[in-house]
Write a protein that binds this DNA or RNA. Sequence first.
DNA 1: CGAGCACTGAAATTAAATTACAATATAGCA
DNA 2: TGCTATATTGTAATTTAATTTCAGTGCTCG
Lengths: 281, 281
Amino acid sequence: MTDVLDLIQQHMDQLSKSERKVAAAILASPETAIHTSIASMARLADVSEPTVNRFCRSIQCKGFPDFKLRLAQSLATNGSFVRREIAPSDDIGTVVEKVVHSTISSLQDLERQIDLHSLRLATDILCGADRIHFYGLGASGPVAYDALNKFFRLGIPVEASTDYLMQKMTAAMAGPNHAFVVISYTGRTQPLIEVAGEAAANGGRVIALTTPGSPLSDVATVTVGIPARENTDIYTPMVSRLLHLTLIDILLSGVTLAKGDEVEENFKRVKGALASTRRLT
Amino acid sequence: MTDVLDLIQQHMDQLSKSERKVAAAILASPETAIHTSIASMARLADVSEPTVNRFCRSIQCKGFPDFKLRLAQSLATNGSFVRREIAPSDDIGTVVEKVVHSTISSLQDLERQIDLHSLRLATDILCGADRIHFYGLGASGPVAYDALNKFFRLGIPVEASTDYLMQKMTAAMAGPNHAFVVISYTGRTQPLIEVAGEAAANGGRVIALTTPGSPLSDVATVTVGIPARENTDIYTPMVSRLLHLTLIDILLSGVTLAKGDEVEENFKRVKGALASTRRLT
DNA sequence: CGAGCACTGAAATTAAATTACAATATAGCA
DNA sequence: TGCTATATTGTAATTTAATTTCAGTGCTCG
């Protein structure tokens, strides 16, 4: 469901002069727009009724009632979660809001844009693997280790590495039942592309968590894409890593489901082991 | 704004038989209800049009269009992001949806419940620090390293450790300008509580990213709380770590803002250094 | 069993939205 | 500059949707 207010902004340049008057009137007080008829809306914008209707159509609504409905939804979803740059004048509360909303917005993009087919392939590979390696460099390093922390519960050998040489060596020992999860936002980090290529060349199954169409994606068996965001605003590094983690969560959930009962037992044992490290008071 | 679906439930006993049929039809598929006219709604519920209208009035809407509007709003807000356990019958698309929505839901909780005062204190400590340590164990380990990856851009010495002995040693060397960010979801991991306590005892400023009221929280200088959730469902470990990361992002954003221009330069230099590792095709 | 009352739906009314079309403005071009 | 072609806008007619009125039905309770 696309946000109508976004839609207005988006089509602004394709609108005629009078239609723009309507847009202005609506943006000025969207709450009023919801509870008013096309007639009074026309009066508010100082145009004729058909113009209001044409405006609705221009922003691809079926008519005025449909527009009102969509507008109501947009306003209700406090989740008009948009990315907004942090400004020097922001207080800490605003920073919280902006960071959280940017994150949510990206998660929504992920949900919309994720390719389920690739995801299924990736899950299949992981289910069939008897050894999983997680590779990451830089900001993606912690992501690899996070994956390790979760996947080891599957009960198969799992490794994570942020060390180029280690990666090169383990890639050299790849076999058909080895899965390699290679994590990179840009997909353009040369050393990572290199080891991913080697792992694949040696028969390993390479899952790339990266931007589709990138060099890393080219050498991988399957790419689970993350939504491409053009400009590198300040959120990009934060958000990309969060999306990676979420993908890891999704993959683990998928694999856990597929494996079913056999991993249940492992989860319980891990939980038991942790219990003894806890202090209750 | 009261939720219309709630409103229906609430007035259910005051509704007549036919009106109840309308209620049932709407509850059965609210999405459909939004996009139909009163005529087809009447047909769906197998009643007459005036009855539908009366129903709307009974649940204190001004009429059918008003009802549709309110319903649209409820669906937009409510239906959106809830935590739902993953079921064995779920396909991969459903898993994506559930994981993402659970994550978003938790982020919303974070935004609502975060204590801005503590956050401000924490930011102040970090701004004033001339050395920052990030401690985590287990699942929080990667979070600590992730923080390292971001905070080093501030240009002050930053360390991350998941090693109990390392932690103990660095905590022993704590001074008033040393900040310690201790990360733990439960706040009950004994070794972590111990080193946090030592760091504080030696004069270090300890920021705990944990559940308020936990033992770890007690020994810390300031606690930045994360929303308490009954930590039973399968999302807890996934989500807690995501919230930690988001908190780190927020803290970094806050500190970056406060420090202003002096860190800008660092960001640029890091960006330049990374550029050379990228492949463009 | 029947009077009174609430409930329901057919039909009429009213209101709202959409369409068709004419008038006006605007841009392009000789 | 003046003319034509096109786009934009508004008026009026039409269609569609929502609401009200009112009469019929069924139900309750004495």
